[in-house]
């Protein structure tokens, strides 16, 4: 092993071999010189500038970055919900224009249709595509089984817990068999335990079906645990800082967070997201001035 290199770039032979195989697969999503400019009162603001990357088939990519780096804007442009002001998005080599069922999306908030049962929610995509009812129903039940919610097929979304709602949302996106699944902080609103379960569950799904995932998160552990590669963005303007190949070998399990590869990757992410000498932002200028409002000897620590 080359000791000159930083730790997070050192890959075990098995990991290196795996990345080589991934690179040989066809490119599903290619983003070229992508940019987004807003008009504001202070003139044009570059939310994203000159973003370039490629995602291969069955890769799991995480996108992280400080708040305001435009990661949500990026995924919304990929989904076709926002227009991009420069560059190009190519899905299977074809330019993307507007939303479509070839790019499934799971949102951070709960977006199940409250007036439909769980099964009908999953059937929604196929029905919109003009599939017959029985066919759509059969497929919906199959995908519900995959996320373990076949027992709740006839329940309404308000009867489900947050984790269950997101499972249904995943099934609803997957039933369309999208080329890529876009996930915008899908587990952000869940409690820590449910979130860990959902992460493991997502890896299981991804392992078993032909699925390419782009996953946005602000949780460094989540990114390191899930991703093949992590796209790190920086803010003002939103640009790609680094595209890190995660050296943690697969299959992943929660015990790996003590290994050298994991710790080195996370340390690198920390370094990129929270640079040692941060520029004075508004947040940091807030300095609370504390005065003592309890009796002198009434100490809690």
């Amino acid at each position: 092993m080359n000791t000159e290199q930083p730790l997070y770039l050192q890959q075990e032979p098995a990991v290196r071999e795996r990345f080589a195989r991934i690179r040989e697969r066809e490119v599903i999503l290619e983003v070229k010189h992508l940019g987004k400019t807003y008009d504001s009162a202070q003139g044009p603001v570059h939310a994203l500038k000159d973003i370039n990357f490629r995602i291969h088939r069955r890769e799991l990519i995480c996108v992280i970055g400080p708040s305001g780096c435009g990661k949500s804007t990026l995924i919304r442009m990929l989904a076709g919900l926002d227009n991009h002001s420069a560059g190009e998005i190519l899905l299977d080599g074809k330019s993307v224009d507007g939303p479509g069922s070839d790019r499934g999306m799971v949102f951070q908030g709960y977006t199940l249709f409250p007036w439909l049962t769980v099964k009908q929610n999953v059937m929604f995509g196929p029905r919109m595509q003009g599939q017959g009812k029985t066919q759509a129903e059969r497929e919906a039940l199959q995908w519900l089984e995959l996320v373990g919610l076949e027992k709740f097929a006839d329940a309404y979304p308000h009867q489900l817990s947050g984790g269950m709602k997101q499972r249904v949302a995943i099934a609803r996106a997957l039933v369309n068999q999208p080329r890529i699944l876009l996930m915008d902080e899908p587990f952000g609103a869940l409690d820590a335990q449910t979130r860990a379960k959902m992460q493991a569950h997502l890896l299981d799904i991804w392992k078993n079906i032909d699925l390419t995932i782009l996953f946005i998160t602000h949780d460094l552990d989540e990114a390191t645990y899930l991703a093949d590669r992590i796209l790190v963005l920086k803010a003002h303007p939103g640009e790609v800082q680094e595209f890190i190949e995660v050296p943690v070998p697969r299959p992943r399990h929660p015990g790996q967070n003590l290994t050298e590869a994991y710790r080195a990757t996370k340390a690198r992410l920390e370094e990129l997201i929270h640079p040692p000498e941060p520029p004075a932002s508004e947040e940091e200028e807030i300095k609370p001035h504390l005065i003592r409002l309890t009796r002198v000897n009434d100490n809690v620590e």
Binding site: P99, S101, T111
Partner: peptide, 10 residues
């Protein structure tokens, strides 16, 4: 977001 979700479902 319900409308957006529907649009991403085609």
């Amino acid at each position: 977001t319900l409308l957006e979700a529907a649009m991403t479902l085609g």
